[in-house]
Structures are given as C-alpha cells and as structure tokens.
Simulated assay, not measured.
Amino acid sequence: MSGQGLFVSFEGIDGSGKSTQARLLSDALKRAGHDVILTREPGGSPGAEEIRKLVLEGDPDRWSAETELLLFTAARRDHLERTIRPALAAGQVVICDRFADSTRMYQGLRSGDLRGLVDALHDLMIGQEPDLTLLIDMDPDAGLARALGRGGNEERFESFGGDLQRRMRQGFLDLATAAPDRIQIIDGMRDVDAVAREVWSVMAEALG
C-alpha cells in the first residue's frame, strides 16, 4: 500500500461506466466503516479543477497532444500534493476516477506515439502508481454511444471518434497485461449491479 492508506484508480474508455462504479464502491466502503475519499482526474484539487476546464471543453484541436500532456501532468501533480498524498498519509482509502493510465492512453496514443514522453514526465513529476487499478472494459462503439448520449460540456475527447476509442481500449488491455499485479480487468458489458459485485470482490481481496 502507499503510505498508510490504499490508493485505488478506475480506468476505461469513455462511457465504460467507471465513474458510476467508482461512486458505488466509495459508498459501499463507507457503509462498511472505511474512511474513503472519492476524487477524479483531471481535477481533484482546486488548481487541478481549473485545468480540467481548459482540457475537457472547447474545440477538439484546441491543444496539441504535447500541450495536453503538460497540462495533465501539472493537474496531476497538484492533485497528488493537495489531495491524494495527504489522504493516504491519514490512512484513508483514495478512489480516483482516472489517473496516469488515462494519460498514457489519451495523450500517449492520440498523436503519434508519445508514450515515452508520457512515462518520462510521470517518472520525473509524479512517481506514484495506484496500489490497485480497476479497468472497466467495454466495447468501444457501445462506450462511445453512451458517452455522447450524456450531453454536457465535457465532450472534447469523445469527439475524436471511434478509432481513438478502439485504440485506447486495446492500449488499456495491453497495460493490464504488462502490470497484472496492479490492474484487474472487469467486464463492463454487464448490468451495473453485476459489475459492482465483481468490483467489490476484487476490492475486498485487496483490503485483506
């Protein structure tokens, strides 16, 4: 575990249901008596939430992938300093809706191959991985349709279309193969309750 607490992230393509599952797990852990903080990326601290507005709204071509990478890294560093590390030091369970794996996929795959730069910046400025990552896996077309159906102002990445979704899904699965001790794949094509039961089973094992 990281420090005294437990750091858990949820990952997946747009529309996979990871945000719903993160919230359900947070609620279930609180009912079980755990001290839990539910947070998100980009965001999770006042400064990072300001950056969130910059990167998730507006024209799809507003930023280059390289500029996005710098913005996301700045947001993550602030989030880590002000929210995640203090909570872990206090013994809390931190549940984060997206973390560095999303940057490895979105910015690392969007424009050529920036994965090397993503990982180098992560090692230099972040230097921390979750103790457990729950990857909610879903068919890319189904996920994109769900994501676009939500509406709202934060649709910039969804607008890049199905090809990016498909490449990201495969990229997430490749990450899970490379880090099997950290990343657990959850089938997100089932109903919400069935997914939540499996998430709880994996979490209960992580808590010992």
Rank of each mutant, 00 (worst) to 15 (best):
residue 133 T to N: 04
residue 115 R to T: 14
residue 20 T to G: 05
residue 160 F to Y: 11
residue 105 M to Q: 15
residue 95 I to A: 10
residue 17 G to R: 01
residue 200 W to H: 10
residue 119 D to K: 12
residue 112 G to T: 14
residue 18 K to F: 04
residue 94 V to T: 12
residue 107 Q to V: 06
residue 17 G to Q: 05
residue 25 L to A: 08
residue 93 V to F: 12
residue 141 D to T: 11
residue 86 P to V: 02
residue 56 L to K: 06
residue 182 R to P: 03
residue 90 A to L: 04
residue 193 D to N: 11
residue 10 F to N: 08
residue 204 A to Q: 14
residue 18 K to P: 02
residue 25 L to R: 01
residue 133 T to W: 10
residue 113 D to I: 13
residue 193 D to K: 10
residue 82 R to G: 12
residue 164 L to E: 05
residue 25 L to N: 03
residue 4 Q to D: 08
residue 198 E to N: 11
residue 184 Q to A: 12
residue 101 D to T: 03
residue 156 R to E: 03
residue 174 D to N: 09
residue 143 G to S: 05
residue 199 V to Q: 00
residue 130 P to I: 04
residue 11 E to H: 03
residue 148 L to I: 00
residue 68 E to N: 10
residue 77 R to V: 15
residue 91 G to M: 11
residue 190 R to M: 07
residue 128 Q to P: 04
residue 64 S to H: 09
residue 62 R to N: 05
residue 110 R to A: 15
residue 178 A to D: 12
residue 43 G to R: 02
residue 154 E to S: 02
residue 114 L to A: 13
residue 71 L to F: 14
residue 40 R to N: 01
residue 45 S to A: 12
residue 41 E to V: 10
residue 130 P to H: 08
residue 141 D to Q: 14
residue 198 E to V: 06
residue 26 S to Y: 01
residue 195 V to W: 06
residue 161 G to K: 08
residue 62 R to E: 09
residue 203 M to T: 07
residue 15 G to H: 03
residue 190 R to F: 03
residue 58 G to T: 02
residue 173 L to A: 00
residue 144 L to R: 03
residue 59 D to T: 03
residue 162 G to Y: 07
residue 79 H to K: 10
residue 135 L to Y: 01
residue 84 I to W: 15
residue 108 G to E: 14
residue 100 A to W: 12
residue 148 L to F: 00
residue 176 A to G: 01
residue 108 G to Q: 14
residue 69 L to W: 12
residue 129 E to Y: 05
residue 62 R to C: 07
residue 131 D to I: 11
residue 200 W to T: 08
residue 58 G to W: 13
residue 155 E to N: 11
residue 18 K to D: 00
residue 137 D to L: 09
residue 158 E to G: 00
residue 52 R to S: 07
residue 95 I to Y: 08
residue 175 L to I: 02
residue 87 A to N: 06
residue 33 G to C: 08
residue 99 F to H: 15
residue 37 I to Y: 04
residue 160 F to M: 01
residue 146 R to P: 10
residue 177 T to W: 01
residue 178 A to G: 07
residue 49 E to G: 00
residue 112 G to E: 13
residue 105 M to I: 15
residue 102 S to C: 13
residue 205 E to Q: 13
residue 192 V to P: 01
residue 94 V to E: 02
residue 196 A to F: 06
residue 174 D to M: 00
residue 98 R to K: 13
residue 104 R to V: 14
residue 83 T to D: 13
residue 147 A to Y: 00
residue 57 E to M: 07
residue 8 V to M: 09
residue 134 L to N: 05
residue 148 L to Q: 10
residue 158 E to C: 02
residue 4 Q to V: 03
residue 122 H to C: 02
residue 67 T to H: 11
residue 106 Y to G: 06
residue 66 E to L: 14
residue 158 E to M: 00
residue 130 P to Y: 13
residue 191 D to M: 03
residue 6 L to E: 04
residue 208 G to N: 09
residue 2 S to Q: 08
residue 162 G to H: 09
residue 193 D to S: 13
residue 171 G to Q: 05
residue 43 G to N: 04
residue 53 K to E: 14
residue 149 G to M: 07
residue 4 Q to S: 10
residue 106 Y to A: 15
